[in-house]
């Protein structure tokens, strides 16, 4: 009871720090996922056209993901120093895999007969992509973006470790000062953010499912 009471007190006392932390957290996460999307979706499309190099490239992004997140952030230090930029680079690398993999498998999963019919009717490659393949794989690509977003919101808590701010800042300070109320003031909003965006993006996924594909 006392921890919760203390947490509520912190919430009132430090609402501005929590708000700042939340905004920083969102900024880090969104910029990273946005950059990752801009890289991974076109790359995923290209890989479906060059399947021979697909496995190695998806493998490399998979490798990035197996690096523990704290270690990945630590690797940024000697190269890019501290601050927001290295954090965004690390988070971007971290977000690539789910988006890349889902774009690739999503497009390859599109009913081949629809693609064949489109080609046979005289669609250009670009028309096949944007009239047939992208609309039909959009829900799967969106699921990849959702996974990446939730993942990144989680990992962004560690960005404070290299001085990039965010809700992790509050958690770290709380841990240093052995103040659970401060830790919770960072942890609870971070968890809520992840859950909130998971729900929002699930809703977007449903909305982007073409009507003819809904059961």
């Amino acid at each position: 009871m006392s921890v919760i009471q203390a947490f509520l007190d912190v919430l009132i006392e430090r609402w501005d720090a929590i708000l700042t932390g939340t905004l920083e957290h969102l900024y880090l996460s969104f910029v990273s996922v946005a950059i990752a999307t801009c890289i991974a979706v076109p790359l995923g499309i290209i890989l479906t056209r060059k399947q021979r190099i697909a496995e190695p490239i998806i493998g490399i992004t998979g490798l990035f993901q197996t690096i523990p997140s704290l270690a990945l952030l630590a690797f940024m230090l000697p190269i890019f120093g501290i601050g927001i930029t290295p954090a965004i680079i690390a988070l971007t690398i971290y977000s690539l895999l789910p988006i890349l993999r889902n774009t690739y498998t999503g497009i390859l999963g599109v009913d081949r007969s629809a693609v064949e019919a489109g080609k046979g009717m005289g669609m250009t490659n670009f028309q096949i992509l944007y009239i047939v393949e992208l609309p039909l794989s959009l829900p799967i690509i969106m699921a990849g973006i959702r996974t990446a977003t939730v993942l990144t919101i989680g990992v962004a808590s560690l960005a404070a470790f290299i001085g990039a701010g965010g809700l992790g800042e509050l958690m770290f300070r709380g841990l240093q000062m052995m103040r659970n109320d401060l830790v919770l003031a960072g942890a609870i909003p971070a968890a809520l953010l992840a859950i909130f965006f998971d729900l929002i993006l699930r809703w977007v996924e449903v909305k982007t499912t073409p009507r003819g594909l809904k059961k």
Partner: peptide
């Protein structure tokens, strides 16, 4: 251009489901 002057029907039909 050639294909747009030729109709094409396949066994799997291949209508665009969306």
């Amino acid at each position: 251009e050639l294909r747009r002057e030729i109709g094409y029907v396949i066994q799997q039909i291949g209508l665009l489901p969306h």
